[in-house]
Amino acid sequence: MRRIRAVTAVVAVVGVMVLAGCGASGNDSATSGDAAPAPAAKQGSGSGESGSEESAGEANPQAPSAGKTDSGAGGGKEQPAITRAIIKTGSLTVEGDDVSGMRQKAVAAIAGLEGQVASEDTGSDSDGKITRSNLVLKVPTKSFETAIQRLSDLGKRLQIHQESTDVTEQVIDVASRIESQRASLDRMRALMAKANTIGEIVSVESELTRREADLESLLAKQKNLSLQTELATLTLTLTEKGKPPVETVKEPDKGFVAGLKGGWNAFTAAFSAIATAVGALLPFLVLLAIILVPLWRFRSKLRRQPAAVPVTGPPAAPNSGQ
């Protein structure tokens, strides 16, 4: 009986499992059958959306996308344009028959360009006729090329040299340092107003004086850069036909370069003086050496010879009879 019950129980369990499997497969098939139209509908809706987008794109082909609009709106602010600061210099040599006439025309041409003559070195012959002229001209930087062209038309151009130096970074750096220095001075003045003791007043006043001196130095540098960028320097050499050109007069060096050149010139001058003195004394030194060296050797030889020892006889024998 127990075996029959066990077999019956096993059969019942297997039957339940079979029925459950059939039910699950039926449900899956039903579900797949019911859900089959859904992806088609979804695909249909997607194609409809893409179709609407394509139609919208055809209707307005130049319409920017949202991303482009945002980037355009974000990049609407343009960066301020930086004006380049350029220092221009040059030299020009012109040859002609009438140096005096060329000089007058050159001065008039520069004045017409709102320029000026910074320095002049003009020479003439024994009859008073001007045969050479060297002019250092200052012209607006924007008119630099025009000035070269007009001056070249005065005669035959023999030599031309142009040079441009970009100092934009220096100009921006100096302007930034000036702004920072002024803000620092304002803070120091505020501290000066709050100082109570004499020690605090002296300390703040000393620092304030130092920073004011630094600001004045920066302002002077800014002014110098401004002048150099606004006015170009052009050295004009006018020479008579058939004669060598006049040597260009260079501006004297200043600052470290001038000090270095001065020190080198002093060193070479001192060395030249010492070398001259040694050269003048050398014959006398040779003569003294010729005289003194033999004397010194003779004296040394005398010192090496031993002194003469006196010769004494044998000692007297003692008197035995006494």
Rank of each mutant, 00 (worst) to 15 (best):
M1F: 07
P39L: 08
R150V: 00
G57R: 15
S45D: 09
G51A: 15
S100K: 08
I82K: 13
L282M: 14
Q305K: 15
L281W: 14
D97E: 15
P39M: 04
D125A: 10
F144K: 00
T197S: 15
K105I: 03
T248C: 03
L281F: 13
S143K: 06
N196I: 07
K250V: 10
P61L: 12
R84L: 14
M1C: 06
A38M: 12
I201V: 14
A81I: 10
Q79Y: 13
A232N: 09
I178E: 00
L151I: 06
K142V: 15
P310R: 06
F271Q: 11
K194A: 10
N319F: 05
L191H: 04
T165W: 00
Q305N: 13
V14A: 12
S180H: 05
L287W: 11
L292V: 07
A273P: 01
P61S: 12
T69S: 12
T122M: 05
D127V: 05
S217V: 03
N319Y: 10
D214Y: 01
T312G: 05
R211H: 03
R2C: 02
T268G: 00
I87H: 07
G96Q: 11
E251V: 08
Q62H: 15
S52N: 12
L185M: 14
P318R: 11
A266N: 04
E216Q: 12
G23N: 10
Q228G: 15
S25P: 02
P318D: 11
G48C: 08
V11I: 06
A20M: 13
E78L: 11
P310F: 02
K105Y: 10
P244A: 14
